[in-house]
Amino acid sequence: MVTLKLTGLKELYTDMKAKGIKRYKFAFTYNKVGFDIFFFTDEIPFKLMFGVKAHNFYFEVNVNNGFIIDTNIGDKYTQLRKILGLQYDPDNPFKTFYFFTEFNKRIPQFANVKNTPEPSDIASYRKDIEESDKIYFMGWRDNEKRGDKVSSENLYKTRLLLDYEAYLICKRKNISSRWTHDKSLAQKFHLPD
């Protein structure tokens, strides 16, 4: 296991915390490939998600105490290398350590509230959720009033696309997040009552 301390992430996190931001989105370019970066601090360990829409590709890394990550991305390595346009060279193999070292240098120091990701931003990479075509948050449904029970699939979608705190509230109070494919029906995310 090869680890790396993301010193740049500490500064961003400090500013996010001061501004009350739990999730943040910014751009990163490596070898002329643009990545959407999502930094999630609403659960432990923190998570970084790297996505390339043009290639329908993303991977996540856990950010452990001290902003330390494991630079091994497992089975995503070969696909990342191809997306970056790097040929396999046994004498000089591509190391994700180099990728993350460069990323660390380009992490913004300050957070802009306007860069808080919408659920639909995250959903465009996460196809492993229920009703993956419904990516716009549309409010809450109180299942107690309906005599229903929130599904584990809905709780999973709530946690991934909205917020860990929302997931905990929904689980505790039997509330489902509601979703639509129609952007005009989208609502601004707020925690359930």
Rank of each mutant, 00 (worst) to 15 (best):
residue 2 V to P: 08
residue 6 L to W: 07
residue 7 T to K: 15
residue 8 G to K: 13
residue 9 L to V: 15
residue 10 K to L: 07
residue 10 K to Y: 08
residue 13 Y to P: 10
residue 14 T to P: 02
residue 18 A to C: 02
residue 20 G to Q: 05
residue 21 I to W: 03
residue 24 Y to R: 09
residue 25 K to T: 04
residue 27 A to C: 04
residue 27 A to D: 11
residue 28 F to M: 14
residue 28 F to G: 08
residue 30 Y to V: 08
residue 32 K to G: 04
residue 33 V to R: 08
residue 36 D to R: 04
residue 38 F to A: 15
residue 39 F to P: 12
residue 41 T to Q: 13
residue 43 E to N: 05
residue 45 P to W: 01
residue 46 F to W: 02
residue 46 F to K: 01
residue 46 F to D: 01
residue 48 L to N: 00
residue 48 L to K: 00
residue 49 M to S: 06
residue 49 M to I: 15
residue 50 F to P: 00
residue 51 G to V: 01
residue 53 K to F: 14
residue 55 H to M: 10
residue 55 H to Y: 08
residue 56 N to V: 09
residue 56 N to F: 04
residue 57 F to H: 07
residue 58 Y to H: 08
residue 60 E to H: 11
residue 61 V to F: 09
residue 62 N to F: 04
residue 62 N to G: 04
residue 63 V to A: 04
residue 64 N to T: 02
residue 66 G to E: 05
residue 72 N to V: 11
residue 75 D to V: 15
residue 75 D to E: 15
residue 76 K to Q: 13
residue 77 Y to E: 10
residue 78 T to Y: 08
residue 79 Q to F: 06
residue 79 Q to M: 05
residue 81 R to G: 15
residue 82 K to G: 12
residue 82 K to P: 07
residue 83 I to H: 15
residue 86 L to V: 14
residue 89 D to L: 02
residue 89 D to S: 03
residue 90 P to S: 14
residue 91 D to E: 10
residue 92 N to I: 14
residue 92 N to P: 12
residue 94 F to W: 08
residue 99 F to S: 01
residue 100 F to Y: 10
residue 101 T to D: 13
residue 101 T to E: 13
residue 101 T to V: 09
residue 105 K to C: 06
residue 106 R to S: 07
residue 106 R to M: 02
residue 107 I to F: 01
residue 112 N to T: 09
residue 112 N to V: 11
residue 113 V to D: 04
residue 118 E to I: 00
residue 119 P to Y: 06
residue 121 D to V: 09
residue 124 S to G: 03
residue 126 R to G: 09
residue 127 K to W: 00
residue 129 I to L: 15
residue 129 I to G: 06
residue 130 E to K: 09
residue 130 E to F: 05
residue 131 E to D: 15
residue 134 K to Y: 02
residue 135 I to K: 07
residue 136 Y to T: 07
residue 137 F to P: 03
residue 137 F to I: 00
residue 138 M to F: 12
residue 140 W to D: 00
residue 141 R to L: 03
residue 142 D to E: 12
residue 143 N to I: 03
residue 143 N to G: 04
residue 143 N to Q: 13
residue 145 K to Y: 03
residue 145 K to C: 02
residue 146 R to M: 13
residue 147 G to H: 09
residue 149 K to N: 07
residue 150 V to W: 01
residue 150 V to I: 06
residue 151 S to L: 09
residue 151 S to T: 13
residue 152 S to W: 06
residue 152 S to D: 13
residue 152 S to F: 10
residue 154 N to M: 03
residue 155 L to I: 04
residue 155 L to Y: 04
residue 156 Y to M: 01
residue 160 L to R: 09
residue 161 L to S: 07
residue 163 D to K: 07
residue 165 E to M: 06
residue 169 I to D: 00
residue 169 I to N: 01
residue 169 I to V: 10
residue 170 C to W: 10
residue 171 K to Q: 15
residue 172 R to Q: 10
residue 175 I to W: 00
residue 175 I to R: 02
residue 176 S to G: 09
residue 177 S to M: 07
residue 178 R to A: 10
residue 181 H to D: 06
residue 184 S to C: 02
residue 185 L to S: 14
residue 187 Q to G: 02
residue 188 K to A: 14
residue 189 F to V: 05
residue 191 L to C: 00
residue 192 P to Q: 11
residue 192 P to G: 05
residue 192 P to F: 06
